[in-house]
Design a binder for these strands. Structure first.
Lengths: 211, 211
DNA sequence: TAGATTGTTAATCGATTAACAATC
DNA sequence: TAGATTGTTAATCGATTAACAATC
């Protein structure tokens, strides 16, 4: 249960386990690492190790894990139970889609406000999130103690807005633009890159056909 | 230049290199692996190895790689130059955002059509992509030789639609829903999972604060 | 008690990094 | 020629998998 010593691959798998647990019928009280592994097509020992690293309460031999407890443990470990404030910049189609997506709350992120420079958008709201003038960004972030900035603008504007966000005290950038962002050391940048996904799909398809 | 022996981590980095090359000023004729590594904050040998695996023409000592040639080589290696047809199911906000996103073409994917069951959407189009009745899915896919199916529906519908897509002859599923999809062996599933991204951001934030 | 399952220690495998030889 | 850079071979590091002991 040492959060700092967790490997990146494990961290990537934990949300998948949690999601699988949530999809189980309500009457399922306990579950073994073995059955999780079988359901998700993963190695049994890998799942057992992952779960034992993330679960505070552990499992019981012969019975496995208590489903509810494990869900809580995983959510806790993943930081989903500690809500972090975020703002979003760039209310285009993708930005709008993210604003109206309800799934972030249960992953520990709350989008507090959105920003744009389009007068037609400023003053309106999407998914219950108000859209402000981009010029209000810094004062808003400082007043509300925002941690995470979501960039859903064109790549051309991304770097300048990123700089602005960091100046406003944000600690992490979730970058949905294709721009490569230059940030000072210590700042967290997470790139959401669909080109990478497409490359993996293309590659898998090619392998498939060359068999 | 052996596409089948490429490692997954390398495959993930290649599109990042390509994207970086595209961001260079037009007058940059050559570039070294060393400078790419420095710009992206990666290990020099790693970049050199990645590039030498993906580039057909290689680089020249002291000069580095020809930028234009390297861009072509990377695009070729990633399968971006071989356009694959896709269809999208579920024209909600996210689906709409993907339909109006122009970046897929240069990654070798063309969204041929979209499907939904909402009569208000059927018959309209977004981003130049026509929206059809979901009941036309199978005949459309068979007639047009569609390879990739993009799922942007609610998780509840995802599995049934996935099954339907596979019955219609599709080879790969790009899953934007949170549902875990059960597919027969050999079918390619790529999950786009925002919960994983959030978990990584949360974890990085926590590490940051515990320093 | 026997068997299923957990959790851990050891062995294997693969990716990253370091060292180096080749070359323009 | 000297130096920058490529590409490769060897060493290290980390993650996965296998083997096993512990336990309910």
């Amino acid at each position: 249960m040492d959060k700092s010593n967790i490997s990146k691959p494990t961290l990537r798998r934990l949300p998948v386990y949690l999601n699988y647990l949530k999809s189980l019928p309500a009457e399922t009280r306990t579950i073994s690492a073995t059955s999780v592994a079988a359901a998700l097509g993963l190695n049994e020992v890998q799942v057992r190790k992952d779960l034992s690293a993330a679960s505070k309460n552990g499992g019981k031999p012969k019975m496995g894990y208590d489903v509810e407890q494990l869900k809580l443990d995983l959510a806790e470990f993943l930081g989903y139970r500690d809500t972090k404030s975020a703002i979003l910049i760039g209310v285009g189609r993708l930005g709008g889609a993210l604003l109206s997506f309800n799934g972030f709350e249960e992953c520990g992120m709350h989008i507090t406000a959105a920003f744009d420079n389009d007068p037609n958008k400023i003053g309106t709201s999407i998914g219950g999130v108000a859209i402000y003038d981009i010029r209000e960004l810094e004062s808003f972030c400082r007043t509300h103690g925002i941690l995470i900035g979501i960039i859903t603008t064109s790549p051309a504007e991304a770097q300048a807005l990123c700089d602005k966000m960091l100046k406003s005290g944000l600690c992490a950038i979730w970058n949905f633009s294709t721009a490569h962002l230059e940030v000072p050391e210590g700042v967290i940048v997470h790139n959401e890159n669909l080109a990478v996904s497409l490359a993996m799909i293309s590659h898998a398809l090619e392998e498939q056909f060359n068999k």
